[in-house]
Design a protein around this nucleic acid. Sequence first.
RNA 1: GGGCGAAUAGCUCAGUUGGUUAGAGCACCUGCCUUACACGCAGGGUGUCGGGGGUUCGAGUCCCUCUUCGCCCACCA
Length: 923
Amino acid sequence: MSEPNQTAPAAAGAELPTHFDFKAAEPAISAAWETAGAFHADPARTKRFGGDRDPFTVLIPPPNVTAVLHVGHGLNNTVQDVLVRWRRMAGDETLWLPGTDHAGIATQNVVEKIVAKEGKTRFDLGREAFVKRTEEFVAETGGQILQQLKSIGASADWTRTAYTFSPELSRAVREAFVRLHEKGLVYRGHRVIHWCPRCLTSLSDEEAEFHDSEGKLYLVRYPLADDPSNGITIATTRPETILADVAVAVHPDDERYSALVGQSLTLPLVGITIPVIADGYVEREFGTGALKITPAHDANDFEVGKRHGLAMPVVISPEGKVGAIADAEGRIPKELDGLDRFAARRKAVAMLEASGALVKIENHKHSVRKCYRCETVVEPRLSDQWFVKMAPLAAPALKAVKDGTIRLLPEKWEKVYINWLEGIRDWNISRQLWWGHRVPVWTCGNRHALAYREDPAVCRSCGDKQLEQDPDVFDTWFSSWLWPISTLGWPDRDSKDLKAFFPSDVLVTAPEILFFWVARMIFAGYEFLGRAPFHTVYLHGTVRDMQHRKMSKSLGNGIDPLDVVERYGADALRWTLIQGMGLGVDVMLDPSDLDKSFAPGRNFATKLWNIGRFILLQVGDDGVQPFEQVDPAALQLADRWILGRLDAAIAECDAGLGPARPRDGHWPQAERQLGLRLDAYAESARRFVWNELADWYVEAVKSRLGEAGADREVARAVLVHVFDHGLRLLHPIMPFVTEALWQRLPGAVTGRLLATAAWPTSDGERPVAEVGNFDLLREAIDAIRALRAQYVVAPGNPVRAFVAAGAGADVLIANAALVQRLAKCRVHVGSPPGGAAAHAVLPSGLELVLPLEGMVDVARECARLRGELDSLSKQLDALRSRLANEKFTAKAPAAVVDAERAKEREWSARTEQLAAKVRELCD
RNA sequence: GGGCGAAUAGCUCAGUUGGUUAGAGCACCUGCCUUACACGCAGGGUGUCGGGGGUUCGAGUCCCUCUUCGCCCACCA
């Protein structure tokens, strides 16, 4: 195979194999794109710098730097690539900015596992050595996913590859924190947070995911200190936390307990006394209506504890072990000291049972929060953390979606988004990890804790030289939320990229990270640059197996995209993903039968290849005149038809892809849900190239191509033109095979790439009558083929068809050769000979009569005609009764009534025709 | 517990503001190596539009209700 960016040698068709050799072609084509700098975005060409192009920016959701490409990435990035290639062809200055995320907690976990294999923990190595080790690991193995994305055709601007932990982006993270700190939007909070005892860090609310579980509800009796025969029974799911109880709360209006409020109870297991308090938070209906209060180990109890000024003893260590951690002297029975929290629970239950305090154990369904990275049950823990105030940040982001500055597709996510933002809670951004951006806060000997843009030598407040930096790092999402601005150069105000390409256009991602990432990017866009970072959020579905299970490593039901590329080609992978890409719909793939999922894409590529092969064989060594030079008057019926179909296909593809951007910065209600119907776009393009161009036009021009002359040149020019445009329409989905073919088309110029060729535009309306005439031809051929199959006429056996003189007959006669070739049928004008005959009434009303002498039995045709007559009569009766209904004629719109009347006339005529045939043939 | 969404052919899904006889792809069946393509060509059938009720001249489409499934959020210990 020749180099794809070379001028196609004439008569290349003769040398082409029957199938596209994607293994050889894909790397060569990728190299040609890269060499040409086809994906490089230049700020100078944008309107914002006086150029003539609209910018179109897409920012990759940065995969974890340690990630290996899976089919979910394949889906996400193929969608982005389709949009980006489309806009690039449409003439926008298109930037698809790639990069990776340092993924603090995830990457740290990976390296900790490696270190664990050496029998060590991160603490054995120490902070500095561990971070260095992680850096080395990332430098060695990180970012391979970007290489893998190239092999599926991703047309990102690789010269701009970003990394959340690079010096540039780290500067943005620091600047963001310092600004928020200066504005009082970050604060140090002392409260109960989610703590992962395995990762040894706090987590945000979003990182502590709910999992339903079958638990137990333990009813435990707390006796009155003054009268042990009396007491209160509480309900708890975590009896080990009794050790940290400081009170029992009841509802203030609960008459069952009102006499006991203010009295003292003896705390089981511990033996100290705690008060009975009244608090409206308690639900009377739940459990026994009495709630033990454990301020240090439950977020709600913490609030109750604060209201009542209670002590907050901590009895569970960071590692999840029971012990007197803080303010808990004398509370830990020696049997429980040092036990893991779950072992302690079992032991505590046994002890309670032995002492008679355990009243009952009930089964109890509830949700348990688990760490989103390691699935360890999260421990609520009293702790000091950095928080971002979310309400002020969320306000403009909420407004943006409500007023149409930003649209979320599918629309249902807008409601979810609004629901979440309206109840938003502050964001815990500090992590007790080592891998990540260090919190830029230093505390001096005089306890001045201040945020610094540059590492300080002395305290800004008092000049003290004894400074200590906060040991914590930021939540990894605290860098991700800046992605749309930090990758473009913020906080550098003079950044050309920022000026040219911000705000971006479409964000393509999965709904799972709507809150983690998408919403927060919108917050950051407004907070730091005063505007939305994108106008459209496209939330695509998930790749699932045939049992609708999410594809995952642990389930072993995954599909390796690179394996698919190897076996079927990148185009096939992309085709399958896009063609199944209904708006917000999950894509189902069968990991046990790759052929089922990916053969259709490969087959389509082969079909394209063979259309190209046919054209190149026909073109031969002769030049082809450019379509623009063809005299419109010289166009034949089929030419006009296929050109009309091309216009229709362009319009459908454009409608499927939708408006690239809102016109005035706002999505009007009518346009809010338009576009990004990638499946509809794919199907329109496929239908045009395969079902119209290949199935009909190519067949229709075959005879014209045989004879030299002016008409042959017209046919060749049109053929090349419509195929060229078909390739353009399909290029965003199947970039490799289309590029390979386009390079070989007559008129291809060295160095010109389909990837940067113009997106097709419609030529305007075609004469409807001409288009209709070709459709008549197709209808006739279809009808004759159907009759042939129905009567089992041997394929080689010719038949005759008779048609009454008239306009329709003229069309059939003028194209008799085509009918002859495609339907094996000679057309005659006039009355058919007597005897058995099959009848075909075309949708346009034209009737064909096929004499069947010797071929079939009359009974069969009669049965068919009677069946048709029967169903038509029934429909006609229904139609007539509707028309007879005065309410219908009075209330339905005139246009509807007129249409129904016209239909009634047409159907009665056809019914009579049919009835006559039945009488003639069957009676 | 609150909120949102879905239920249409064996499978995955379309079905625009209610208006012909509800569509597509895949799968399946039959016949064809008709020289661009067997990774192809031609033909074919399949639906009580989840159940029930209502509004309307007319409901897959709007309303109510039930059933099933999914998603998001949440401080029932």
